[in-house]
Design a protein around this nucleic acid. Structure first.
Lengths: 147, 147
DNA sequence: TTACTATTGAAAAAAAATTGCAATAAGGTC
DNA sequence: GACCTTATTGCAATTTTTTTTCAATAGTAA
């Protein structure tokens, strides 16, 4: 599908002196076919269901590379493990998570990036990513578990 | 020291029909004596060094309560485990984390709370907490590992 | 094609968090 | 204060997540 992220990843891998393997590309492609957040287990099962026998170890080894080159981001830690999303080609966005139903909504606000940019500029920071989360009880759930 | 968080915690525990135990209070007090981020292991060792034989299980069981009543917050997940901080009595603040030296800096910006408040209002959300993180390479580290 | 060595899958290990259980103790009632 | 009910505790075992080890495989440059 989208060629760009593949090129970015390949260039990144080459530039680091690493090897561009089929496993790495398959993982990348699968991640970019998921239009939602995912965790390692989900990704592993999706690959498996498509006939790819890629180990979880390879997924765990590939994710940091994808994160380092800015294609993927850790979104939030929930239920004892990390959840990810692909971010290349998407505007930076914030997440609301309902503490009751666990629903996750995305939204954007230019002020968030502004704050980050200004802070980075002020302190000479090489900004890599931002994460903004709002936690609370959604309209449907408030009043139930929500105090 | 500060009596308020103790009262808040006790009231919260009572309101839930739970029991206010010495262990819970000791954990609370210790957390509020740490003026930095901490993880479960650090907290456990601090308690142990002071002669308290409180198990990690109790810490793991107490933290969600402290979070639920708004005294403590999960700050970030790093090195495979969660890091916490006490938030009662502090202004909401954002965190910058250097991906190289791991340094963590705090800063405030009213726009962040504004965005959260507006979003909550717009969707009828009962806002519980926000988390804003900036990840990148600090002035000292940029250029080294920082692409 | 050859040589070098990074990467892989599988299994083991490590680390983090949760759970089961018997003993203890909080806190309400008499 | 004694008694009763049951939540909480510490410990150990377990579960879950992530990392590491290692022999076999396979990229990639020469």
């Amino acid at each position: 599908m989208n060629v760009s992220e593949i090129e970015i990843f390949r260039d990144f891998i080459k530039k680091k002196g690493l090897r561009y393997t089929p496993e790495r590309e398959i993982i990348l492609k699968e991640i970019f076919s998921i239009h939602d957040h995912f965790d390692v287990d989900e990704l592993y099962l999706r690959l498996r269901n498509k006939g790819h026998r890629i180990s979880k170890a390879s997924i765990y080894r590939t994710l940091p590379l994808l994160i380092e080159c800015g294609l993927v981001q850790e979104v939030y830690h929930e239920d004892g493990h990390m959840h990810y999303e692909h971010i290349y080609g998407h505007e930076p966005h914030a997440h609301f998570r309902c503490l009751s139903c666990r629903r996750v909504e995305e939204f954007q606000d230019p002020r968030l990036e502004e704050v980050a940019q200004e802070y980075a500029q002020k302190y000479g920071i090489d900004l890599k990513m931002t994460r903004f989360e709002i936690l609370g009880y959604c309209a449907n759930c408030r009043g139930k578990g929500g105090l």
